[in-house]
Design a protein around this nucleic acid. Structure first.
Length: 276
DNA sequence: TACATTTGACCTGC
DNA sequence: GCAGGTCAAATGTA
């Protein structure tokens, strides 16, 4: 059994346990409050959502692998799939040796490769939430040959996990890409007008300054993290995704409860159920 | 013990 | 055949 399949089983077992708790609660006249039942329901729904999400991604992965290995003649489709993932390359300076490019997301290294013609190997990172939330974000980090203090970072696919760990020192998931986004969007900005995306340089001082600005931007409420449904979250947070597929901005207000509207609708509908 | 990193092997595209 | 990308077992670390 693969790691993904184990996670699916674990999630289903958790849902089963929650359902049992709900049943016990409903069968017991001196059961906890209605709010407790609502919490249990939302947790069960979250388990289903996660399971579906994981199964979909597991299926995609399986299909993709089998497709790649068995149907090698269908190259048009492969090219099409490849085009769906466009890439943006930026270069960010950092003085923190060993911890390059802490961009606020949780990355897990899955490979390193010596690149022909390059002094330094290229590191391959994927989002930590790839298995649990199906986030397909990937980045490649390579030291610049010309400037060892400069890292060339290539982001492939955008984050769909929408999770910025509260423990992360710098909660700036949008900053570096925002900079690039600004460079693309603003024709009036002469300083970035002539820059190619892959040549975009960000000074350390500027980085620290921006980090301070975006330090408070994070999803640090564990209850929110627990209750949000990922699809609804994606819709309600309204991330402005560019044509490249890179998520550049998030329009979200900490006080905006629109994120919970769908959940409230679900819970609201359950109010009408006779067993509540 | 769980999670992250390393690294050699394997796969695919050119 | 080569180079780049990914996988997964082995290893390291908290």
């Amino acid at each position: 059994m693969s790691m993904e399949e184990k996670l699916v089983v674990k999630e289903l077992e958790q849902g089963k346990e929650l359902a049992n708790q709900l049943m016990n609660s409903l069968n017991n006249p001196s059961s906890p409050s209605k709010e407790s039942n609502e919490i249990l329901i939302s947790e069960i729904l979250r388990c289903f959502e996660n399971t579906i999400h994981m199964m979909v991604n597991l299926g995609k992965k399986t299909l993709k692998r089998s497709h790649e290995r068995s149907d090698q003649s269908n190259k048009k489709r492969r090219i099409f799939e490849k085009k769906k993932t466009e890439e943006v390359e930026i270069c960010v300076g950092t003085g923190q040796e060993g911890t390059p490019l802490d961009d606020g997301y949780c990355w897990r290294k899955y490979g390193q490769k010596d690149i022909h013609g390059s002094k330094y190997p290229r590191g391959y990172y994927r989002c930590t939430h790839r298995l649990t939330r199906g986030c397909l974000a990937v980045k490649q980090v390579q030291k610049s040959d010309t400037n060892p203090l400069c890292y060339e970072v290539k982001y492939v696919e955008s984050h769909t996990c929408d999770i910025t760990p509260s423990t992360t020192k710098h909660s700036i998931p949008v900053f570096q890409e925002q900079k690039l986004h600004d460079a693309k969007q603003s024709d009036d900005n002469d300083t970035v007008k002539h820059m190619k995306p892959e040549e975009l340089m960000i000074s350390i001082e500027d980085l620290d300054y921006k980090k301070e600005i975006f330090r408070t931007f994070s999803f640090s409420n564990p209850e929110i993290d627990d209750f949000l449904e990922w699809n609804d979250l994606m819709e309600n947070l309204s991330p402005t995704t560019s044509e490249s597929g890179i998520t550049n901005e998030f329009h979200v207000s900490p006080t905006d409860d629109s994120c919970f509207s769908s959940l409230e609708n679900i819970l609201g509908s359950t109010h009408d159920l006779s067993w509540m």
